[in-house]
Design a protein around this nucleic acid. Sequence first.
DNA 1: TTTAGGG
DNA 2: CCCTAAA
Length: 485
Amino acid sequence: MNQVEEESLYHSLEEEAIVDCLLVEPRSDQVSVSGVWCFDEDIHGKCIKTEDAPYKLGVSDSNLNAECVDTTKLNALDVLPHEVGVENSLAANGVSACDDYLLDIGYVENGSCIDYGSNEGLHVGNCSSESRFPMFHDKGSYGIRNSLTENIRGSKCQSYFIGKTMCDLHYSCNCIFGSSSEAKTVDKFGDFSKSFIYEENKEDNSSPRFAQNGMEVSTICRDVPDQDQDQDHHGGVGSITHKRSRKPTKRYIDESSNLNIRNCKKRREASSVSKVKISKIRRPKIQNEVEPKEKLPTSEISFGKAIQVPFISQAPTECQKDNSPPPIENRVESYSSDDDSETMTKSESGGNPRKHHRLWSVSEVKKLIDGVAHFGVGKWTHIKKLLFSTSVHRTPVDLKDKWRNLLKASRALNGSSRIEDEQKRSQPWRPLPKSILCRVRELASVYPYPREGNSKISKSKFPLARHVSSPARIKGNNNNQVPVV
DNA sequence: TTTAGGG
DNA sequence: CCCTAAA
């Protein structure tokens, strides 16, 4: 027993070292990432054509060609369908889709990428244009983009799959090749310390070996029922045919149980309130159609009904996205007073679907004013499409609201400079340049906001100073001056 | 689906 | 910024 453990540990360390070697940032001359895994059942039976494998990983091509990964190994990967978000599509395709089924497997840059918390690691679906990994192409097929690190070593059909993404692979293979004769669920959290290794045994069916912790985690993804029930997969405990080098560590058990909880919750949510969630995320969807460039890879996992925003750590992504690129032109023409700092207040605890409050930069305001000058008031969609096409977070409704606010501000400016000074004093963080307000005022005179005269706002809120067409008219404290409509 | 308007 | 009614 001890010997077995030692041996296992030895292998683990060895393989881990290999893994470490492989986890360095792929160099263009060393790692080819242009290809995809192709599951070609016709040619090689249940083999993966590794000649199309994207990663050479330091292995010669001949080796790669000689390798084939028995799909039973792949079937050994269990997965929650909704977890990878491929349930509909893959199920729809079924076995017949195996020929053109492509798996785009990403090569992670470092260990931290393989994490349930990482966005890429969970993104499954049609590849979007914004991929960190250049090998992610959208070939019209269903791609599984994952932080899957995979190593093929030697000619003995040894395949090492590291990371939770094997769940994805397994599910895919289940869909493609039917029932799994061997259900080994493997999973991984966090880092490579818990990565497992699949190794093909000569006589036995595949038995997973785990790189370090040596844990078998069939409890995580047990939800996909296996047609073949002749083996005890529950944790593999007590199963003779399954070699397990080590017992799961306490930490692993904790994590897996946590994941289970989360998965269950997610499943419930996905099944019951998926519609609600879809409606809640409507805004990013709308914006993404307009602007794929700034598509959020994190929350944009629209794969059928699978709303999958699983274990994203919202805060970092948010910061990353939001501090990133206000369009360059904005920066250039931006006033010094407001440098596009979109200080958005993150919705508390990440669960609140309320949109972040983004301050309007001066450049944005200017664009809005230009748009209004061009298209007139009310053509918010035109303005949005033509002038705010690069601003994913500004919807036509936002433009409308902003214009309303600008009108209000212009009125205030118009009303009295003293009020403006007070505003400046009270809100020194957002000084709106007077020129802009003046321009708003002019435009307001040209395009009275709602419609000529019949505005509830003008009647209820601003009964006296609705139209600012004659600015000089409203002077001082604006009292009791009947505006001429 | 877009816009207006209230909140 | 959200929501809803109206067009």
